[in-house]
């Protein structure tokens, strides 16, 4: 029974990772930018929610939509300031700009919101769900549902609709896409807006009823392995990859930590990530790129 409990909770945490990784994948899928600052977007969203619900004292059902709109605006602003000028630049420039963004946002959040620990509103019921001996946290259960809905919806959007396919073309190649008459600028802006909104939703599910500090951004790095495992272009694959990574982490925490006496559970995603990088860098469902000379 314990085992089942660990597996289910691991899977639900994995779905949370998948939601945060989804922000990463959407940004990559539509703009070919690897966003290292994903964790910072999550806490930026968290602080916006904190600000609207506690500092402005708004009702929760008003605060959450406002926060989502505000974070969409923040995503757009970041894209305008940092990334518009880099269309068609090398991978190195892109990686370094998002690394710069990571550091910059961390300083910015610290400066604007301060280092203090903040309360986070209770969005989902705190009482966990009991099924026999199983104990399932409500926030992760509902969050898992949201993740699956988002994944199916975005997957359909990117694979079946015209605007989605247009954005997919941008991820293939900026120059080719713009010569086909696709606006690379709009595509990247849309990607960052969706990415920022998804990050804020991830923050709400992750932090509901907990306390908020800027250390919560570590979840961005924990979500990277999920994105990589699924393959950077696959949104539907995130669910499977998230569940696998989450279960592996849950079981490692439960059974390996007492033996080794260390935090093997927290590094488990990175061990998986190194394995994927060495064996199959394109992940489970990623595109195989064929390089021509």
């Amino acid at each position: 029974m314990d085992f089942l409990n660990y597996v289910i909770n691991g899977a639900l945490i994995g779905l949370l990772y998948a939601l945060i990784a989804m922000g990463f994948v959407v940004i990559y899928r539509a703009s070919k930018v690897f966003n290292f600052a994903q964790g910072e977007l999550v806490i930026l969203g968290g602080f916006i929610v904190w600000y609207t619900s506690f500092e402005l004292g708004l009702n929760l059902w008003l605060a959450i939509p406002i926060s989502l709109i505000a974070s969409a605006f923040a995503g757009y602003l970041i894209e305008r300031i940092f990334l518009t000028k880099l269309i068609g630049e090398s991978v190195f420039s892109m990686v370094m700009v998002t690394v710069g963004l990571l550091i910059f946002l961390r300083g910015f959040i610290l400066l604007v919101f301060g280092p203090a620990v903040r309360p986070f509103p209770i969005v989902f019921p705190l009482r966990p769900l009991f099924i026999g001996d199983l104990l399932i946290p409500m926030n992760l259960l509902i969050g898992g549902g949201i993740t699956i809905v988002c994944a199916v919806g975005l997957s359909w959007f990117f694979n079946k609709t015209r605007p989605g396919l247009r954005m997919t073309a941008v991820a293939e190649d900026h120059v080719v896409a713009s010569s086909m008459g696709i606006s690379v600028k709009h595509s990247i802006a849309a990607a960052w807006i969706i990415g920022a909104v998804l990050s804020t939703m991830g923050a709400i599910i992750f932090l509901s009823g907990k306390s908020l500090t800027f250390l919560a951004s570590d979840i961005g790095f924990a979500a990277l392995p999920v994105a990589l495992f699924a393959g950077l272009e696959s949104i539907g694959g995130l669910i499977l990859a998230g569940v696998i990574v989450g279960v592996a982490q849950g079981l490692a925490t439960a059974y390996l930590d007492p033996i080794i006496g260390g935090s093997i559970g927290t590094v488990m995603p990175f061990i998986i990530m190194l394995g994927i990088l060495l064996v199959r860098p394109t992940g489970l469902f990623g595109w195989r790129t064929i390089e021509r000379v």
Binding site: M96, V97, V99, G100, L101, L102, I103, F104, L105, R106, G107, F108, L110, L111
Partner: peptide
């Protein structure tokens, strides 16, 4: 942090 990120 802001200086470093901004400079990069």
């Amino acid at each position: 942090n802001m200086f470093l990120g901004g400079v990069i």
